[in-house]
């Protein structure tokens, strides 16, 4: 080869001016970090607006919204075999309502039993409480049942359902404009909002536990019932601690700590 050809061959092997010498992985991390920061700011802003809005909502409006979003939830037909259990639960529930002035004039918190093999309970936005048949089969003590009921009523007292709806609407609307840019953005936004909603849910569960703990102290002088209930569940469920980050509830260990500290 001539000298000119040697030079050309060397040029081919050398740096390519048309391609930037950037680390794409590192670049992506930086831009993802920026995007996550923007999304967190949006979530924090609209989450705060939502919280202020729900906290300042009048009881009358609350009842209207609850009826509106619960009109389709028809409770199951009560089974006669659970009558005694329901009677006992209603007694406990009435004591809870009498201890919290903010609940007066709102829902009657009707209790229904769901046939299910897991220990669980939930409350609908209109205050209807569902308890699984397995919870009754475990023959929990009165203070333990009071903890379960107070926890669910705590969600109602804190307007947790309304907060979730309000946040989802506001944050969803705000982020949809970003998400519609392209599919990759939508994937990232979904991931961030999923993680954020799990964290928000865990925080609501924590507050419901604190509410239930305070209620037990008012009713029985201590929150022993709550601790006993959690210890019993903890013995049966031994899931790894890290899974709490992917759960809507704090880990049983964390919930026990919450009760011990409150």
């Amino acid at each position: 080869m001539t000298n000119r050809e040697d030079l050309q061959a060397a040029l081919i092997q050398d740096d390519n001016i048309n391609v930037s010498k950037t680390n794409e992985g590192f670049n992506l991390l930086i831009f993802l970090g920026g995007l996550i920061f923007v999304v967190i700011l949006i979530i924090a802003f609209f989450g705060t607006i939502s919280d202020i809005f729900i906290s300042n909502m009048s009881d009358k409006t609350q009842m209207k919204v609850e009826r509106l979003i619960s009109f389709n939830s028809s409770p199951p037909r009560p089974d006669i075999k659970y009558n005694k259990n329901i009677e006992k639960l209603n007694e406990i529930k009435n004591i809870i309502i009498s201890k919290d002035k903010s609940l007066r004039g709102k829902s009657n918190f009707p209790i229904f039993i769901l046939e299910d093999s897991n220990v669980n309970a939930c409350i609908f936005p209109n205050g209807t409480i569902y308890i699984t048949s397995e919870t009754l089969k475990q023959r929990y003590k009165d203070d333990e049942l009071a903890f379960i009921l107070a926890h669910e009523i705590g969600h109602y007292a804190h307007r947790d359902h309304l907060r979730i709806f309000s946040r989802q609407i506001l944050i969803g609307l705000a982020l949809s404009s970003l998400g519609c840019q392209n599919a990759s953005m939508a994937n990232i936004l979904n991931g961030i909002t999923d993680i954020e909603s799990l964290a928000h849910s865990r925080s609501q569960e924590k507050n419901a536990d604190i509410y239930a703990s305070n209620m037990l102290i008012k009713m029985y002088g201590s929150n022993k019932g709550g601790k006993d209930f959690i210890k019993k569940i903890q013995e049966k469920e031994n899931s790894p601690e890290f899974l709490k980050y992917f759960s809507t509830h704090p880990s049983w260990q964390d919930r026990l700590k919450i009760l011990e500290n409150s």
């Binding site: 391609v19 930037s20 950037t22 794409e24 670049n27 995007l35 840019q181 392209n182 953005m185």
Partner: peptide, 28 residues
């Protein structure tokens, strides 16, 4: 897919879509 994802994210902030530069260069 990685290049597309990186370009999509960068598209939000603007600037050179460097992840596609090598694709265009190779193609040309």
């Amino acid at each position: 897919y990685f290049k597309k994802f990186a370009a999509d994210i960068k598209n939000f902030f603007g600037g050179r879509l460097t992840s596609y530069e090598s694709v265009m260069d190779r193609g040309r």
